[in-house]
Structures are given as structure tokens and as C-alpha cells.
């Protein structure tokens, strides 16, 4: 269940992980995209960090909403609207429930509404989907996340910038899947699911 404390901790850990892996994420985006995913995410999470440390949010919906607005206005590219919409949908639902599974499912629905991608198209959806299934079954662990991220390696991209390289996208991990992997490993570390 989300609380003010564990949500703030989660986002802080996520920010730290993104900053640490910024170059790696951009490297993943180089052969199959335009090499900016790490920079895009780093710029956005830095803004999230600054906003959350300056405003003292006292409820989960406003933390999630601030996060969404910062991602929407700072990230740009494809990942800005996708992560931004996900957090915005979670923010909306969090005034009704603080259970993790339905919140993440609302986030995923937002990603799909915005990007029109399905499972198997080598995007961050290929991490969100199995993660949500595992949370619902109360079985999420690091290995599940890792497996989902690695599975994007053998897929061919049919959405986003990576689709332009066609078959040549096979053999590379999807950068958005990797950053979503960090979102969920840090969620575990923050003790949001238990």
C-alpha cells in the first residue's frame, strides 16, 4: 500500500537510480533510438526531486500529481508523456485507493491510451504488464523484473523510434523497459509492496 513516506522514498530511490544509470540508458537508446533516453529521464527525475523536496506534500495524490507534472513538463520525447500520463492516472485513482496493483494498472492503461502500443512491441509496456500481474498475485521480486527487462532484447520494435531500424532492433534491450525496471526495483526497495 502506498503511504506518504514510502511513496517519497520510492521516488527518491528512483531518482538516484536514474541519475546513476543515465549514461547506460542513453547507451541503450543509441543503437535503436536517438541516444537521449538517459538524458531525458535524468532531467525529469531531477525536477521531480527538486519539486518534492521543496514542497512538503502531505498526501499521496499530490505527490503523484507533482511527479506527473514534472515528468510531463521536463522529459519531452516519447517517455515524458508516457511516464507523465502513468503518474497522472495513478494520482487520480489514489484518492480512491492506495493499493499498489490497481494503481499500477491505471498507470499502464494511461500509457496504452497515450502510446497505442501492445505487449510484445518492445516498449516499457513489456515490463509494466508482467510486473502488475506479479503484484496482483503477490509474487513480485527482483527476478521477475529482471526477466521482463531482458525479454525485450529478443523482441522487434514496432512502436516508437526503434521501429525505424526494424529487424536491427533485435538483440538490444529497450531503454524504456530498462528505466521501468528501475522504477519497479526501487518500488520493492522502498517497501511499497509487502
Amino acid at each position: 500500500m502506498l503511504t506518504v513516506e514510502n511513496t517519497l522514498k520510492w521516488l527518491e530511490l528512483f531518482n538516484a537510480k536514474i541519475q546513476a544509470e543515465k549514461d547506460y540508458l542513453s547507451e541503450l537508446d543509441t543503437p535503436i533510438g536517438d541516444g537521449d533516453h538517459g538524458n531525458n529521464m535524468s532531467r525529469g527525475l531531477l525536477a521531480v526531486h527538486e519539486a518534492l523536496t521543496t514542497q512538503s506534500a502531505t498526501d499521496v495524490p499530490s505527490i503523484l500529481k507533482t511527479t506527473a507534472m514534472m515528468l510531463i513538463s521536463k522529459v519531452g520525447g516519447a517517455s515524458g508523456p508516457l511516464y507523465g500520463t502513468a503518474f497522472l492516472e495513478m494520482a487520480k485513482l489514489s484518492s480512491t485507493t492506495l493499493e499498489v496493483a490497481p494503481l499500477l494498472a491505471a498507470g499502464l492503461a494511461g500509457i496504452q491510451k497515450r502510446g497505442h502500443a501492445q505487449v510484445g512491441e518492445k516498449t516499457l509496456i513489456d515490463v509494466w504488464t508482467p510486473v502488475i500481474q506479479a503484484v496482483e498475485a503477490d509474487m513480485l521480486d527482483g527476478a521477475t523484473i529482471e526477466t521482463a527487462v531482458m525479454a525485450t532484447k529478443d523482441m522487434q520494435a514496432t512502436k516508437g523510434r526503434a521501429s525505424y531500424v526494424g529487424e536491427r532492433s533485435i538483440g538490444h534491450i529497450d531503454p524504456g523497459a530498462a528505466s521501468s525496471g528501475y522504477l519497479f526495483t526501487t518500488m520493492l526497495m522502498a517497501g511499497v509492496v509487502s
Binding site: G76, G77, A78, G80, P81, L82, T85, R114, G115, R161
Partner: peptide, 11 residues
């Protein structure tokens, strides 16, 4: 028609 442009303009 770029995925990023389409999504940001739609938002």
C-alpha cells in the same frame, strides 16, 4: 509523425 511529437501535442 514522430511518436514523441504526437504524444506531446495530444497531451
Amino acid at each position: 509523425n514522430y511518436s514523441g511529437d504526437v504524444m506531446n501535442f495530444e497531451m
